[in-house]
Amino acid sequence: MDIRKLKEELISYCKELGIDKIGFTTAEPFTELKYRLIRQQELGYQSGFEEPDIEKRVTPSLLLAEPRSIISIALAYPAKMNVRVEGKKGERRGIFSRASWGLDYHHILKDKLKKLEEFIITEAPEAKLKSMVDTGELSDRAVAERAGIGWSGKNCAIITPEFGSFVYIGEMITSLPFEPDTPIEDQCGSCTKCLEACPTGALVQGGQINAQHCISFLTQTKGFIPDEFRDKIGNRVYGCDSCQTACPHNKGKNFHFHDEMEPDPEVAKPLLKSILKLSNREFKNKFGYVAGSWRGKKPIQRNAIMALAHFKDDTAVPNLIEILENEASPVSRGTAAWALGKIGGEMALTALKRAQMHETDKEVVNEIEKGLNFYR
């Protein structure tokens, strides 16, 4: 087998598949990354969504027997909607981050990687392969950086010269000895715009993030959002793009290469009050195909409640009272109580005083008190 020819054929086949960039690297351990991950763990900066075994995150040989190389792929996604919708008083809208526009990117990349695997097996039947996207053990970003897809920016995203950081990435460990590509030199320089743009200061320094403070992480949690972050979430119902939109390397970058990534404006920027009323089935029917639905309905509804408070939307007060008085979830009831206080008005005040008399959950009682404090 001519491994160089196979590499050239793979690159050509990627163009047929609609893969926007491909890179190759060795399957050597990611030694430098290991020490960074240990430090992140010590500082309590991890999100908890990662693979917990650091050795698996940095050692390809623990994931595939006798690995020789890793293939990294990137697909560019849109940065702007072709069709825009705007919110207005009484019809305020939330926003999903760009990584949750269109079909869930996990499905898109896994399909591309599966087809790449089939192509390789046809040419090299003895090859051993293992692909992963996002939820796999390896760090997608570390692989992409070493494979020359882009450099690891200060915003902790892979930045490509062609597409900026608006790319989805995935990888495949292989037993084939593909020649590695050359990594791209860091081009962030002295720029700190992403750090300055981060609403919560989650970007501790260039290339280091405290995930516990990151809005993208916070919008995916299931409990109460800590008080200090509530006002900073704004109208985001899932994810955050502030560190990307601030990046000079993303200026003018907006690619519409993949139809399945095109957003439905009513899903990507949904009416907030409509989210509050969705049943599980209705939520799944409307949002189930996007990446932002993976944690279920409750976090999105909680975030929508906070977004209505952000807008001080008094037309939502009856909806929030309904949640406060009848919702089974303590997080929803409590967040609604806080939001009612934030929005204000006599109707909200009366509802909070009434709830204070009957509520038994300690956390919700605490949130009702926070809501009442806005009147003091």
Score class of each variant (00 low, 15 high):
Ser61Val: 06
Glu145Phe: 00
Glu282Cys: 02
Leu195Thr: 10
Leu195Lys: 02
Pro199Trp: 06
Val364Ile: 07
Gln40Cys: 06
Asp231Val: 03
Lys193Trp: 03
Phe255Cys: 09
Arg354His: 12
Ile71Asn: 05
Lys7Met: 01
Leu75Gln: 08
Gly164Thr: 05
Asn155Asp: 05
Ile108Cys: 01
Ser279Glu: 07
Ala328Thr: 11
Asp259Val: 10
Met172Trp: 01
Gln208Asn: 01
Asp186Leu: 00
Val237Pro: 01
Pro125Trp: 07
Ala124Ile: 10
Gly207Lys: 05
Arg333Val: 02
Arg141Val: 03
Trp101Ala: 03
Arg141Gly: 03
Glu55Asn: 15
Leu320Met: 08
Leu62Val: 12
Arg36Phe: 08
Glu28Pro: 02
Asn326Trp: 05
Asp181Lys: 05
Ser139Asp: 11
Ala99Glu: 08
Arg92Lys: 12
Phe24Cys: 04
Cys156Ser: 15
Ile70Ala: 04
Gln301His: 03
Gly102Trp: 02
Arg354Glu: 15
Ala246Ser: 15
Pro299Lys: 12
Arg281Trp: 04
Gly170Leu: 01
Arg98His: 08
Asp111Val: 01
Lys312Gly: 07
Ala304Gln: 08
Ala355Asp: 08
Ile169Glu: 05
Ala348Leu: 10
Met172Ala: 08
Ala328Gln: 13
Gln212Asn: 14
Ala316Leu: 09
Ser329Tyr: 11
Ala316Cys: 09
Gln301Leu: 11
Phe178Gln: 03
Cys198Ala: 05
Thr192Tyr: 00
Glu171Val: 07
Pro199Ser: 07
Arg141Ala: 11
Trp294Ala: 13
Ile173Lys: 01
Val331Asp: 00
Leu33Gln: 02
Val85Ile: 15
Glu145Ala: 06
Gln356Lys: 14
Val317Ser: 00
Ile343Leu: 02
Phe229Lys: 07
Ala291Pro: 04
Cys243Leu: 13
Asp186Cys: 00
Thr192Asn: 05
Ile149Asn: 00
Tyr375Asp: 09
Gly201Leu: 05
Gly334Lys: 07
Val290Cys: 06
Ile323Ser: 02
Glu327Cys: 05
Arg146Ala: 04
Ser332Cys: 09
Asn373Phe: 07
Glu228Trp: 08
Leu203Met: 06
Ala202Phe: 03
Ala74Ser: 12
Thr245Asn: 14
Glu123Ile: 02
Arg295Ala: 14
Asp231Leu: 10
Leu129Val: 09
Val85Asp: 01
Leu103His: 03
Asp111Tyr: 03
Glu322Ala: 10
Val133Gln: 10
Phe224Ile: 08
Ile225Ser: 00
Gly136Trp: 05
Ile70Arg: 04
Leu75Glu: 12
Lys353Trp: 07
Trp101Pro: 02
Leu6Gly: 04
Ala339Gly: 00
Asp104Asn: 14
Val237Asn: 01
Phe30Gly: 00
Gly136Cys: 09
Lys286Asn: 13
Gln244Trp: 12
Phe49Tyr: 14
Val143Ser: 02
Thr350Trp: 01
Lys251Val: 13
Asp2Tyr: 03
Ile54Phe: 08
Arg57Ala: 07
Lys15Phe: 00
Arg39Leu: 13
Phe96Arg: 11
Asn326Gly: 10
Asn254Met: 13
Val290Thr: 15
Ile225Asp: 00
Ala339Asp: 00
Lys298Trp: 08
Arg93Phe: 11
